[in-house]
Design a protein around this nucleic acid. Structure first.
Length: 293
DNA sequence: AAGGCAGTCAACCGCTCGCAT
DNA sequence: GATGCGAGCGGTTGACTGCCT
């Protein structure tokens, strides 16, 4: 569908950094009248900016409830966990972190957390030789590693709620010990509040793990597009069995996502409004991110 | 002191979604 | 169903800053 640009560039609207005077105009207007229509706001507030720019400035910087300063270990952990579940849905993640904006979280992820995960060996591996469908396979491995890491963090939190010594718990879990981990998951699954362990220890999670070696889809917003794109990916020799495996993996992956959405109550509404964390969230906070990183 | 470089983050751009007509 | 519009989202850019040589 065709769409006119939101800002009429012929009017010479100002771009670039905001001045304190502009900030004041915007804050004063919104505090007095609310933002109403962002398109009309600049004119009403006496600003030579486009509405989009005003909205961004307000939501990312001027809003009174914005929390400034460095991310706490709890916030870092929440971001990592949420990202493992929803991917680059920054607004969804931001909704779970009061006072933080999607832009801030996105920047923080790209500049800090990505590096930390890379150091942990959980970053997306570099593109390998063109054997099979490397992109999809790497993504599958990456997803598996991520899910395991997230579930491990949850296990850590669970064990810390029953006993102290969280760092010891971390070090006793082998990074590659899926069976040990699965067993621990089963045990912890009796605590329905732990979403990651429930996911991991479910039939769907088990099935997903078993498919990890097979190609998996690239995570995107639209499932239909995922399937179409992945099926169009050239496999090794592009034979029909490879295509069949891909389709199967796609369906498996979709089941996993559906399970998260339907059975565990995630992804409600357009951008969430879900809560990943149980009431004993303070327990999670005790498990410093440093123990995992 | 000055230039190069990398890291950080505010802001912009282009796209999609949801709703109204 | 097609179209238009406003709002919001995620990716990217570019200015700024600090460190290093």
């Amino acid at each position: 569908m065709g769409r006119a640009p939101c800002c009429d560039r012929t009017k010479g609207l100002k771009k670039g950094p905001w001045t304190p005077e502009e900030d004041k105009l915007l804050v004063d207007y919104i505090q007095a009248n609310g933002h109403g229509s962002w398109r009309l706001l600049p004119k009403l507030a006496g600003l030579n900016r486009c509405g989009k720019s005003c909205r961004l400035r307000w939501t990312n910087y001027l809003r009174p409830d914005i929390k400034r300063g460095p991310f706490s270990p709890e916030e870092q952990k929440s971001i990592v966990q949420l990202h493992a579940i929803v991917g680059n849905k920054w607004s969804m993640i931001a909704a779970q972190l009061p006072g933080r904006t999607d832009n801030e979280i996105k920047n923080y992820w790209n500049t800090h957390l990505k590096k930390q995960l890379r150091r942990m060996g959980l970053a997306e591996p570099p593109p390998g030789p063109a054997a099979g469908c490397p992109a999809a396979r790497h993504m599958a491995q990456w997803e598996t590693a991520r899910l395991e890491a997230e579930a491990r963090l949850s296990l850590l939190a669970s064990s810390s709620s029953g006993a102290t010594g969280t760092t010891a718990a971390t070090t006793t879990i082998s990074a590659s010990s899926s069976s040990t981990f699965a067993a621990a998951g089963e045990k912890a699954a009796s605590k329905p509040a732990d979403i990651f362990l429930r996911l991991w220890s479910s039939d769907i999670g088990d099935s997903f793990r078993s498919k990890a070696a097979a190609p998996a889809p690239v995570r995107r917003n639209d499932v239909v597009i995922i399937k179409q794109e992945a099926q169009a990916l050239p496999g090794p020799g592009d034979d029909s069995s490879a295509a069949s495996n891909e389709t199967e993996a796609l369906e498996e992956y979709q089941m996993f996502l559906d399970f998260a959405g339907e059975e565990l109550g995630l992804f409600h509404g357009r951008h969430g409004g879900f809560s990943l964390f149980p009431p004993h969230d303070d327990v999670l906070a005790e498990a410093s991110l440093d123990t995992a990183f």
